[in-house]
Design a protein around this nucleic acid. Structure first.
Lengths: 386, 386
DNA sequence: TTGTAGGCGTTATCAT
DNA sequence: ATGATAACGCCTACAA
C-alpha cells in the first residue's frame, strides 16, 4: 500500500522545516515530527522505527543505528500522549496539596517529585485549597488526565473517597489524612506520640500550666495531637483545663490571636504546646508583643521542624516530621500499587522530639540555658497491614 | 519520655475489600468506559455522544439529556489523553523549579498553579535541582509529554534554550532567569533597584560600613543585587570594599559561614545587606552566635519577604517580591503565547522595601525603636517590548 | 439532527 | 528482521 498519507503537503521531509500554511483562524498547533516521518526518511515501516527506538532486540543493529541517527537528526521526540493512549499507562501521577506555598506540603512534594522522577514518572501538581469540594474536583480532573496514581496530602476527604475511587479505578495514597477514620493506603506521622512527647518534656521541665494552641478542630491531625497533649497531662496527674486548650488555624495569624487569649487568662500558662511550627511562629510573636520572653517567661514547642525552626530566636524545640522521606514513602507505596502489588496499607512514621532553646525550666532565670538531651527516640513508629 | 511502643501492631484495618481478580502477569490496566460504550447504551453513534457531552447546539436536547444521564450513570470520564492526541493540545503546562521545597519557588508555583487551574490547565511539576544539565533534561521530558507551554523559575539555562526551543516548538516563559543575558519571555524582579533601596536605607540610617552577603557568584540575580548595593555605595560616596562583599550560597548555612568571616574582620560592618531572606536567616544566627544583637549592634536586610520574615525576632526589614503575582503574570503571559498572541516579552516587576525592625540607626542604643516609613515605592517597575 | 469515515502518533499482533 | 494492519479514545469533516 502506497503511503496513503502525504496529503496536500508540499512534501519536504520533516515537518519542522517547511511551515505548512494554515488558515489564520483557529490555528492548529503544527505537527511534530512523528515516527512515520522517520520511517519515510529511513525507508522502513513505522513499527520498525518504534522498535528501533525502544532498543528492541528484534531489529537489525545496523538499521537500528541508522534509524536512531535519522531520528536524532530530525529532532524526533516521542509523544507520551500517543503512547499513553495505546498503553493505557501515562507514567504520570497526580499530587494534591492544600497549597504548595505551605512549607509542610512543599517538603513532602519535594520527596514525591524526587521519587517519581527517579522512576520515570511525571507529577501533576494541584492545589485543593484545603477544601473538600475543591479537592474532589481536582482529583476528578486528574483522573480525566488518566494519571496512573494519586497522592493527596492533608486530605479533607479521606475515606470518603472510597466510592469515587471504586469508579475511577486509580490507586491513591494519602499523606497525613485529615479526615476522621482510616483510609486504605496512607502515610501518617505519629501525631499523638509526638505531641505527647513534647508535652511530657514540658512537664518534665517543671511546668504545670501547659497550654495547647491547636488547629481548627475536626481535622484528624489536630484531634490526635490534642489527644497526645491530654494523655501527657493525665499521666502527670495534671487535670485538663479546657481554658488552656485553644484553637488557631494552623497558621501564624490565627495562632497569634489564640495565644493572646491565653495570655489574658487570670492564670496564664508557663508553657505552650503548639499544633505545628507555623502556629508556634504566631504564638511566639504574640508572646513577645506582651513583652514576655521565650523561654524565660514561657516555653514553646512546635511540630514539624520546618526549615526555619532552627533559625528562630530562640531556636524552636519541636517534633520533627521527616517530610521528604514521607513523600518518598508515599510515592514508593504508590509505585507498588500501580504495579499491581498490594503494598503496605498504612504506614505510621515515628516522630522525633528535637530539643532546642524555646523551652526551659519553669521559672527559669534569664541567661544561657543548657541544650536539652536532643531526643532521637522514635515515637510511635510502626506499620500495619503489610 | 521514652515510648517506643506501638510498633508492629497486628493488622486490623480494611485493606480493600473485594478487588477484581486480575491476571497476575503483566495485567493491562482495565479499559475505562468510553464514548463508544455510552453510544451503545444510548443507541446513538459516538460522535453524537461526543457532541452531547460538549453541549454542542446541534444535538437534540432530548437525546443530549438522555446521553448525559447515561454517561453520568456509567461513570464516564473523558480521556484527556485521547483528546490531546487528536486536538494536539493537552491543556497542560510544565513548571520547572530548582526545588519545590524552596519557599520562593513554592510561592511562585502557587500563583502559577492558581492561574493555570483557573484556565483549565494542569501543571506538571519538575525539579531542576538548580543544575543546568538536569534542567535541560526535565524540559525535554516535558516536551515529550506535549505540554502546551513551559515556565522555568530561576533557570540556569536561560537564553541557551533558544536552539532547543526552536526544535521543541513550545512557548516558554522564565521567572527570575539566572542565566546572564536576556531571554525572550521573562518575568523578573527589579533586583538592582531593590537591593539599592535596601542599601540606601541602611546608609540613610547612618551606616558607612555596610556589608553584602551574596549568593554564589555568576548568577544573574546575584550579579544584579550586588550591583544595586554598589550603586548605593557609590551614590553616597562610600568606596566599595571587596572585603565587605562575601558570598554565601543563597541558603542559611552558607550565609552563616560567610557572615562569620565578616564578623572576624578587623573592622566589622555595622550593617549587612543580604542577598535574600534565607541568607538573612543564616546571617542573623551567626550574629547572635557572636553575642551581638540585631539591630543594636548590626542592622540586617533581606530580599523576598518570605512568609516568615515578619515573624522573625526582630522582624526582618526586606525587599518584597510579589511572588504569587509573579507566578500569575508568568502564567498569563504563557497563556497568551499559547494562544498565538505574541505578548509582552519581558516584564520587570517592581520591588518594595518593607521596613521592619532588623534595621536601626548606626550606634543605636538598646531599646524599642520607631518603625520606619514602610516604603511602598515601586522600585524599577516597568515592562518592555510590548 | 444524526451517522459514516477517517486520523491523531503510538504500540501490539499478526503475518511474512 | 520487517511490514501490514489494527487498535487506543476522541474529534472533525462530510454525508445523509
Amino acid at each position: 500500500m502506497a503511503e496513503k498519507d502525504v496529503k496536500k503537503k508540499t512534501s519536504s521531509g520533516a515537518p519542522g522545516g517547511g511551515r505548512r500554511e494554515v488558515r489564520p483562524t483557529k490555528q492548529q498547533p503544527s505537527r511534530q515530527v512523528s515516527i512515520k516521518d522517520i520511517a519515510r526518511l529511513a525507508r522502513v515501516s513505522h513499527p520498525t522505527v518504534s522498535r528501533a527506538l525502544q532498543n528492541s532486540p528484534l531489529v537489525n543493529p545496523a538499521t537500528a543505528a541508522k534509524i536512531r541517527k535519522i531520528a536524532e537528526a530530525a529532532g524526533y521526540r516521542p509523544s507520551a500522549v500517543a503512547r499513553g493512549l495505546v498503553t493505557r499507562r501515562t507514567r504520570t501521577v497526580g499530587l494534591v496539596v492544600t497549597t504548595v506555598a505551605d512549607p509542610f506540603a512543599s517538603a513532602v512534594a519535594c520527596g514525591i517529585e524526587q521519587a517519581a522522577n527517579d522512576h520515570g514518572y511525571a507529577v501533576f501538581l494541584a492545589n485543593s485549597n484545603a477544601d473538600a469540594e475543591h479537592e474532589r474536583k481536582v482529583v476528578q480532573a486528574l483522573a480525566e488526565r488518566r494519571v496512573d496514581g494519586i497522592i493527596v496530602t492533608s486530605s479533607r476527604v479521606g475515606s470518603d473517597y472510597l466510592p469515587m475511587l471504586a469508579q475511577l479505578n486509580v490507586p491513591m495514597v494519602l499523606v497525613n489524612d485529615q479526615y476522621p477514620g482510616e483510609f486504605v493506603h496512607s502515610v501518617m506521622i505519629a501525631n499523638e506520640e509526638g505531641s505527647r512527647a513534647a508535652t511530657e518534656y514540658l512537664i518534665g521541665m517543671g511546668h504545670r500550666r501547659v497550654a495547647y494552641v491547636g488547629d481548627r478542630s475536626g481535622y484528624q491531625t489536630e484531634t490526635e495531637r490534642l489527644e497526645g497533649y491530654k494523655r501527657a497531662l493525665a499521666k502527670a496527674g495534671i487535670e485538663f483545663d479546657a481554658k488552656l486548650a485553644v484553637h488557631g488555624d494552623g497558621r501564624p495569624e490565627g495562632a497569634a490571636e489564640a495565644m493572646e487569649a491565653l495570655l489574658q487568662l487570670a492564670e496564664p500558662p508557663t508553657a505552650v504546646c503548639c499544633y505545628n511550627d507555623m502556629t508556634a511562629l504566631g504564638a511566639m510573636r504574640a508572646i513577645r508583643a506582651r513583652g514576655l520572653r521565650v523561654p524565660e517567661d514561657l516555653s514553646v514547642t512546635g511540630f514539624d521542624d520546618l526549615f526555619f525552626a532552627e533559625y528562630l530566636e530562640p531556636p524552636l524545640t519541636t517534633v520533627r516530621q521527616p517530610m521528604r522521606r514521607m513523600g518518598e514513602m508515599a510515592m514508593e507505596n504508590l509505585l507498588k500499587l500501580m504495579s499491581g502489588e498490594d503494598s503496605v496499607a498504612q504506614v505510621k512514621v515515628g516522630a522525633e522530639l528535637i530539643v532546642r532553646k524555646s523551652t526551659g525550666r519553669v521559672g527559669m532565670k534569664p541567661g544561657p540555658q543548657m541544650r536539652g538531651t536532643g531526643g532521637t527516640q522514635g515515637l510511635g513508629a510502626g506499620r500495619r497491614n503489610g
